[in-house]
Measured scan of single mutants.
Amino acid sequence: NDEAKKEAEKLWKNNKSEDEIKERLERAGISPDEAEQWLQELR
């Protein structure tokens, strides 16, 4: 999970869309709710 979150953070810094980041997190096995929460922390 931490690995996926690091990846999400990297994508965020590269200005990827939130949808793309969420999709990537969900593919890594993170629930949509958790993915949404993680994005809010990044904002």
Rank of each mutant, 00 (worst) to 15 (best):
Asn1Phe: 13
Ile21Val: 07
Leu25Gln: 00
Arg43Met: 12
Gln37Arg: 12
Arg43Thr: 05
Gln37Phe: 05
Glu41Gly: 04
Ser31Asn: 08
Asp19Glu: 14
Arg27Ala: 12
Glu18Met: 12
Leu11Asp: 15
Leu42Thr: 04
Lys6Leu: 08
Asn1Leu: 13
Ser31Val: 03
Glu18Asp: 09
Ala4Arg: 07
Lys10Cys: 15
Trp38Tyr: 08
Pro32Leu: 09
Ala4Ile: 12
Asp2Thr: 11
Asn1Met: 14
Leu39Val: 06
Asn1Glu: 09
Glu34Cys: 13
Glu41Ala: 09
Glu34Ser: 03
Asp19Pro: 07
Lys6Trp: 06
Lys22Ala: 01
Glu34Phe: 05
Asn15Trp: 01
Trp38Cys: 00
Arg24Ala: 14
Glu23Ala: 11
Lys10Pro: 14
Asn14Tyr: 03
Arg24Leu: 15
Gln37Glu: 12
Lys10Leu: 14
Asn14Gly: 11
Glu41Leu: 08
Asp2Asn: 08
Pro32Asn: 10
Glu3Pro: 05
Ala8Tyr: 03
Arg43Asp: 04
Lys10Glu: 14
Glu9Gly: 01
Lys16Gln: 08
Lys13Arg: 12
Glu23Trp: 00
Glu9Ser: 03
Leu25Tyr: 00
Arg27Thr: 07
Trp12Leu: 14
Lys5Gly: 00
Gly29Cys: 00
Leu25Ile: 02
Ala4Thr: 06
Asn1His: 14
Arg24Gly: 09
Lys13Glu: 15
Leu25Glu: 00
Lys13Asn: 11
Leu11Gln: 07
Ala35Gln: 07
Ala35Arg: 02
Ile30Lys: 02
Ala8Val: 06
Ser17Cys: 13
Glu20Trp: 03
Asp33His: 11
Asp2Ser: 11
Leu39Pro: 00
Lys5Phe: 14
Leu39Ser: 01
Glu20Cys: 13
Ser17Gln: 02
Gly29Glu: 04
Ile30Thr: 03
Leu11Thr: 00
Glu18Tyr: 12
Gly29Val: 01
Arg43Leu: 09
Glu20Gln: 07
Leu42Ser: 02
Leu11Val: 01
Pro32Thr: 09
Asn14Arg: 01
Asp2Gln: 11
Gly29Thr: 02
Asp33Met: 12
Leu25Gly: 01
Glu36Asn: 06
Gly29Gln: 03
Glu20Lys: 01
Asn14His: 04
Trp12Phe: 14
Asn1Val: 14
Ala4Asn: 04
Leu25Arg: 01
Glu7Met: 15
Ile30Pro: 00
Asn15Ser: 07
Asn15Asp: 10
Ala28Tyr: 14
Glu23Gly: 07
Trp38Glu: 02
Ala28Val: 08
Asp2Lys: 11
Asp19Gln: 13
Glu3Thr: 10
Asn14Cys: 15
Asn15Pro: 01
Trp38Met: 09
Glu26Cys: 15
Gly29His: 02
Ile30Phe: 11
Lys10Val: 09
Trp38Asp: 00
Gly29Ser: 02
Trp38Lys: 02
Arg24Met: 15
Glu7Arg: 02
Ile21Trp: 07
Glu36Trp: 06
Trp38Gln: 00
Glu3Asp: 10
Ser17Met: 04
Glu41Asn: 09
Asp19Gly: 10
Asn1Gln: 14
Leu25Asn: 02
Glu9Trp: 08
Lys5Tyr: 14
Glu18Gln: 05
Leu42Arg: 04
Lys16Asn: 10
Glu41Cys: 14
Trp38Phe: 12
Lys13His: 12
Lys10Gly: 05
Asp19Asn: 10
Ile21Lys: 01
Ala4Pro: 04
Ala8Leu: 07
Lys10Ser: 06
Trp38Thr: 04
Lys22Gly: 00
Ser31Ile: 02
Lys16Tyr: 15
Gln40Ala: 12
Glu3Ser: 08
Arg43Val: 09
Ala28Gly: 06
Glu36Ile: 04
Trp12Lys: 13
Glu23His: 06
Asn15Thr: 04
Ala8His: 00
Glu41Ile: 06
Glu20Met: 05
Gln40Arg: 08
Glu18Ala: 11
Glu7Thr: 07
Glu3His: 09
Glu9Arg: 09
Ala4Leu: 15
Lys6Cys: 15
Ala4Gln: 06
Ala35Asn: 02
Leu42Lys: 04
Glu26Gly: 10
Asn14Glu: 15
Asn14Ser: 13
Ser17Pro: 09
Arg24His: 15
Glu23Leu: 08
Asp2Met: 13
Asn15Ile: 03
Leu42Ile: 08
Glu18Gly: 03
Glu34Ile: 15
Arg24Pro: 02
Asn14Trp: 05
Ser31Leu: 07
Pro32Met: 08
Arg27Cys: 14
Arg24Lys: 12
Leu39Phe: 06
Glu41Ser: 07
Ile30Leu: 09
Ile21Gly: 00
Glu26Ser: 12
Ala8Trp: 05
Ile21Glu: 02
Leu42His: 03
Ser17Lys: 07
Leu25Cys: 03
Leu25Ser: 00
Glu26Leu: 14
Ala28Met: 15
Lys13Pro: 15
Gln37Asn: 07
Asp19Lys: 13
Glu23Lys: 08
Glu26Ala: 13
Ala4Val: 10
Leu11Glu: 09
Ala35Pro: 00
Glu36Thr: 04
Asp19Tyr: 08
Ile21Pro: 01
Glu9Met: 06
Glu41Gln: 10
Arg24Phe: 15
Lys10Ala: 09
Asn1Lys: 15
Pro32Gly: 06
Ala8Ile: 08
Arg27Tyr: 06
Ala4His: 05
Asn15Gln: 06
Ala8Thr: 02
Asp2Ile: 13
Asn1Thr: 13
Glu7Tyr: 11
Glu41Met: 08
Arg24Trp: 15
Glu41Asp: 09
Ser17Ile: 03
Lys6Val: 07
Glu41Tyr: 08
Glu23Met: 09
Gly29Met: 03
Arg43Asn: 04
Glu36His: 03
Lys22Asn: 01
Arg27Gly: 05
Lys5Ile: 05
Asp33Thr: 11
Ile21Ala: 01
Leu39Gln: 00
Glu26Ile: 14
Lys13Met: 11
Asn14Val: 03
Glu9Ala: 05
Gln40Ile: 07
Glu18Cys: 15
Leu25Trp: 02
Lys22Pro: 00
Glu36Ser: 04
Trp38Val: 06
Glu23Asn: 07
Trp12Glu: 14
Lys5Cys: 15
Lys6Asp: 06
Glu36Lys: 02
Ala4Gly: 06
Lys6Tyr: 05
Ala8Ser: 01
Lys16Thr: 14
Asp19Cys: 15
Asn14Ile: 04
Asp19His: 10
Ser31Met: 08
